[in-house]
Write a protein that binds this DNA or RNA. Structure first.
Length: 114
DNA sequence: CCTACTCCTTGGC
DNA sequence: GCCAAGGAGTAGG
């Protein structure tokens, strides 16, 4: 957990793959579930829209919609969500799919065949 | 390859 | 407050 004051502790963690930030609640109820489900996706791994949809009892379209309208597209790892068959899909933040690809490549463990 | 289904968010009335 | 349209998908023909 982060210390009370971020200002005076740059050394809390050099590298953190988890966030527990007190983000403002999603404007939409489903959005909260979405973010929670997405947050379950571990660093370096990915999930498909369909899988997430099944996880929260929704539909792939809804996932995409909520993600696209996601207020925190980078905090919430929307980039770990791929389409069926590992298709890259789309991305609404940064440079779009390019950013998504970069993020995924960045998180991809070295030597791994993910 | 194109069509239909599904569900959520958003914008207009 | 309700109705209509759009969207980061998926399955079926």
């Amino acid at each position: 957990m982060p210390p009370r004051s971020w200002k005076h502790s740059a050394n809390w963690k050099r590298i953190s793959t988890e966030f527990d930030l007190p983000l403002a609640l999603s404007p939409t109820p489903r959005g909260a579930d979405l973010r929670q489900a997405i947050a379950e996706i571990a660093y370096g791994t990915t999930a498909s829209y369909g899988a997430l949809a099944r996880a929260i009892g929704s539909s792939p379209r809804a996932i995409g919609q909520a993600c696209a309208r996601n207020p925190f597209p980078i905090i919430v790892p929307c980039h770990r969500i791929l389409g069926a068959g590992g298709a890259l899909g789309a991305y609404s933040a940064g440079e779009g799919p390019i950013t998504k690809s970069r993020l995924l490549d960045h998180e991809r463990p070295p030597g791994g065949l993910l």
